[in-house]
Design a protein around this nucleic acid. Structure first.
Length: 437
RNA sequence: GUGGUCGUAGCUCAGCUGGUAGAGCACCGGGUUGUGGUCCCGGGGGUCGCGGGUUCGAGUCCCGUCGAUCACCCCA
């Protein structure tokens, strides 16, 4: 019986997921991020310490617990909060700036939907420093993600970037003090439309119609180059924080333009990740899958981790692996060339010959070729079907009476003499191939 | 967590106003004592998500529950 929100995928899908994990890991390491795994549980105080009360946290309890135990534990709902805790706890042993990646499951008790689960996998990178963190790390995040995704057969990714300093500074310069509330209302723009947003701005934060219109004008700005800066300036609002934010956002956009044209777009209505983000925020959509929302997001957090009066600012971004794959699987947008890793099935003429066939399979494996011996000495037709149903490309036939062995490509039907100590399949056939559509 | 829609064989679905289940594909066997995918013949398989209620009788009506999905919330 399935449990809502806790998906269990079949081997082909798991193979695809593992390929994504491999790609993420390899790319993260290319950029110098070090591997880390933190425990699955944190004290609830840690999980809720940054105003994350809205997140549905799963609590952990023992079956034999007498009553409510002190020091209640909860499963982590992201990888950033546990990481911040880890950094403060181990600050003395780490070298800063500290770059690490974590690919782990996280849990949230929200209502499941397609691409939204209660247990899901995230692939996360973060950089944390002591005191202050250089801004160029904010520009690196989208590049790493672009690198991961461009190496996978998934639709093109579009990373939307904004900077909370721009919004906050703008609203403040405009004379609206409740910047958080304004942000929250603006964030609903796509859902409730400009008119409703305007009404709420007037009603909830006491904005004048002109102020509300100006906020909407800001949210409307979007560009793949630095032209958004002028567009903002034209709105005639000035504030030091706004200037700072614009400069930062410009650096992210220009760096991306230089290294990966088309990957990043400045989108001034992006406001999510309100919780602990203080500057840059990222959100990612796959082309053609915009309606499913973001599959990768993150941002800059300057105040998440502190020890005494020392702070550890950071910036990070996280790929929702389960979310992305769940969405693509749902649209049949990903496929794998076979349902098992096996490249060669060694046919078994008689059960007495199993030992010989095992040796043949062993010779193939020793050279890195995934091979298995047929389950029973059924008719060869059945043994070929065994391979065919699984998408296994080759069947190996032991030669009789001293005749040489042969190997058959069951897709083409071509069958040639072969030596298990030397034969190699084409590189493309060695392992299952993931493809998109 | 709130609300809506949906839930019949492995898959896609049919089953009129309630009278105790069907098709195609898939699967298994045979035709083809051993190199498959075509074709022909035959076969297995469903407590109609689960539980309760109304009724002489429920897949078909009502309630609950579980699951999927959509919107809200929130976010990967």
């Amino acid at each position: 019986m399935p449990i809502s929100g806790f998906p269990e995928w079949m081997p082909p899908q798991r193979m695809i997921e593992q390929r994504v994990i491999d790609r993420a890991r390899a790319t993260f390491e290319l950029y110098g991020y070090a591997p880390l795994e933190t425990r699955s549980v944190e004290p609830i105080e840690t999980l809720l310490s940054k105003g994350e009360t809205s997140k549905e946290v799963y609590l952990l309890s023992r079956l034999q617990a007498e009553k409510a135990e002190e020091g209640q534990l909860g499963l982590h709902f992201d990888l950033t909060v546990p990481f911040a805790r880890f950094v403060t706890e181990n600050a003395g042993k780490l070298q800063f700036p500290f770059k690490r990646y974590q690919i782990q499951k996280v849990w949230r008790g929200e209502r499941p939907q397609e691409g939204r689960y209660r247990e899901f996998l995230q692939a996360d990178i973060d950089v944390v420093n002591r005191g202050t963190l250089p801004f160029h790390y904010d520009t690196e995040m989208p590049l790493v993600i672009g690198d991961v995704l461009s190496g996978l057969p998934v639709p093109r990714a579009r990373i939307q970037v904004n900077n909370r300093k721009v919004c906050e500074g703008f609203y403040r310069g405009l004379g609206l003090a409740q910047t958080d509330e304004v942000l929250r209302i603006i964030d609903k723009l796509d859902k409730i439309g400009p008119n409703a947003v305007k009404e709420q701005l007037v009603a909830k934060v006491g904005a004048t119609e002109a102020q509300a219109d100006t906020c909407l004008a800001l949210a409307d700005i979007s560009s793949e180059d630095g032209s958004f800066v002028d567009a903002v300036r034209k709105l005639g609002v000035s504030d030091p924080l706004l200037d700072e934010g614009l400069e930062e956002l410009l650096r992210v956009v220009e760096t991306a333009r230089d290294h990966a044209p088309g990957l990043v777009v400045a989108e001034l209505k992006i406001a999510r990740g309100l919780d602990y983000y203080t500057g840059t925020v990222y959100e990612t959509q796959l082309e053609g899958y915009e309606r499913f929302g973001s599959i990768c997001s993150g941002g800059r957090y300057d105040n998440l981790a502190t020890v005494g009066n020392e702070s550890f600012p950071g910036v990070g971004i996280s790929i929702g692996v389960s979310r992305m794959l769940g969405i693509l699987f749902g649209q049949q947008a990903l496929a794998v060339s076979r349902s098992v890793p096996t490249c060669v099935v060694v046919a078994l003429p008689h059960e007495e010959l199993r030992a010989d066939c095992d040796r043949t399979a062993g010779a193939l494996r020793r050279r890195g070729i995934p091979a298995e011996v047929a389950p029973t000495a059924a008719k060869f037709g059945k043994q070929i079907q065994y391979a065919d149903k699984r998408g296994i490309p080759y069947v190996w036939f032991p030669g009789r009476d001293g005749e040489p062995d042969t190997v058959k490509d069951i897709r083409s039907g071509e069958q040639v003499e072969a030596d298990a100590a030397a034969w190699e399949p084409p590189a493309a056939d060695l392992h299952p191939v993931i493809s998109g559509s």
